[in-house]
Simulated assay, not measured.
Amino acid sequence: MNFNFLSPVSDSVLAHNQLLAPLSLGRKIKIHSEAEGIPDLEHVKVAILGVLENRNDVNYIGETFNLNEIRKSLYTLYPGSWTTVIADLGDIQKGETVEDTYFALKETLAILIQRRIIPIILGGSQDLTYANYRAYDSLMPMVNVVNVDRAFDLGDSSKPIKNNSFVGKIILDEPYNLFNYSTIGYQTYFNSQEEIDLMERLHFESYRLGEVSNDITLVEPVVRDANIVSVDLGVLKAAEVSLKQKVSPNGLDGKEICAVARYAGISNKVSSFGIYEYKPSQDDEITSMLISQMIWYFIEGVNYRVKDDDFSDGNSHQKFITLADSHELIFYKSIKSGRWWIEIPFLSNVNNKLKKHTLLPCTHQDYLDACNDKIPERWYKAYHKNSV
């Protein structure tokens, strides 16, 4: 196993861990330490991985940071009645250049994902999502990315990559593996009209903060279809976080972001989860504790994953057919979990990497809407993406 890029968890965190109650999370997980080296990853399902890279932050002025406070907060929590085995693999340090850090992260993630270990990436700047995406190049032909963020981060792809423009690089850099990109919790005034129009033209999905806060369950089918979920902590409202972390008086609250993390965990498809834009400050306890709780809820979700998306067995789901706006829409409902999917027809004249009927996660409400002659927005976008 080539994990040369990883440095161990700091001794001060390990010393703090020794003082914790025997049943706390820190005493239950496998930890990469100077003394013991990288733990045995046999049976490990979730791996925590820090990346100390923030040089492509547009506001970078040379500051360094560490993730010790997050680890201390996380280790003090108590696990649920989980069977999931967890490891903390330590940190990837800054490389000579940012590209070196990207390479180290990409290689490390590719190994973990191949071994069916889900990495939780704790990062500096969110452009690290680009390296996360590139880790899938040799693993699968099409990738779905969900960005939980106040902004789309499309940016000007002709300029060097930054934390507010990495999505443009994901879309335009070869190999072209991006199938769908969705943004959850965006706030219109943080996005130019050009970016909003481009999202529309590319048939990408975007869910405004108001929609998400009004009904958090909207998020579930979106992340159920994602391979990568990337969270920008700037999506949180200022009241929820410590001084340096404050971005906007509006945003998701702690309860909502933990719900998003749990939905990401429950998704059978999500194989990497990243939390970015962490900026420690003197009064940091509240941000590190909130991030720890997000990690906790993600692992809780992973622990309760249900294999409910095997549609080859006719007894595992119910099938519903309805007509909406002259389209025949076919829905499936899992008997095991009660979750819903809608079929996207394959268009034979399109040279499409999918080459089959694709099942798109949806909600029960989408089915009810279709029964009332209203085509679900997600179906409409996916259908048009298939026919571009």
Rank of each mutant, 00 (worst) to 15 (best):
43 H>N: 15
49 L>M: 03
32 H>A: 00
41 L>Q: 09
60 Y>P: 01
56 N>A: 13
78 Y>H: 14
45 K>W: 02
67 L>N: 03
65 F>H: 04
74 L>E: 02
20 L>M: 06
22 P>V: 09
41 L>M: 06
34 E>N: 10
24 S>M: 04
58 V>N: 03
20 L>V: 03
80 G>N: 12
53 E>F: 08
79 P>D: 13
32 H>P: 00
80 G>M: 11
76 T>G: 01
26 G>P: 00
79 P>Y: 10
69 E>H: 01
53 E>K: 03
60 Y>A: 12
28 K>E: 12
38 I>V: 10
31 I>N: 01
23 L>G: 09
74 L>A: 01
53 E>W: 09
52 L>F: 07
37 G>A: 09
55 R>C: 08
75 Y>F: 15
33 S>G: 06
51 V>I: 12
48 I>S: 06
65 F>A: 00
35 A>N: 09
29 I>E: 12
75 Y>M: 01
76 T>F: 02
50 G>Y: 05
74 L>W: 15
67 L>H: 06
80 G>T: 08
33 S>Q: 07
54 N>F: 05
43 H>Q: 15
24 S>R: 09
66 N>W: 02
67 L>F: 11
26 G>S: 01
30 K>I: 05
39 P>H: 06
78 Y>V: 12
30 K>D: 14
77 L>Q: 11
60 Y>N: 10
21 A>N: 07
19 L>R: 05
68 N>S: 14
55 R>V: 07
47 A>W: 15
70 I>C: 03
24 S>V: 04
73 S>M: 06
79 P>H: 09
22 P>D: 12
24 S>G: 01
61 I>P: 00
32 H>S: 01
63 E>Q: 14
72 K>H: 05
58 V>D: 06
70 I>T: 03
26 G>L: 02
38 I>A: 05
69 E>M: 02
75 Y>V: 00
37 G>Q: 09
30 K>G: 06
66 N>H: 08
69 E>P: 00
65 F>Q: 04
69 E>T: 04
43 H>F: 11
80 G>D: 12
78 Y>K: 11
79 P>Q: 08
28 K>C: 09
55 R>E: 15
48 I>W: 12
56 N>K: 13
27 R>I: 04
59 N>I: 04
34 E>D: 11
80 G>I: 08
42 E>R: 11
39 P>M: 10
81 S>M: 07
65 F>D: 04
38 I>D: 03
26 G>E: 00
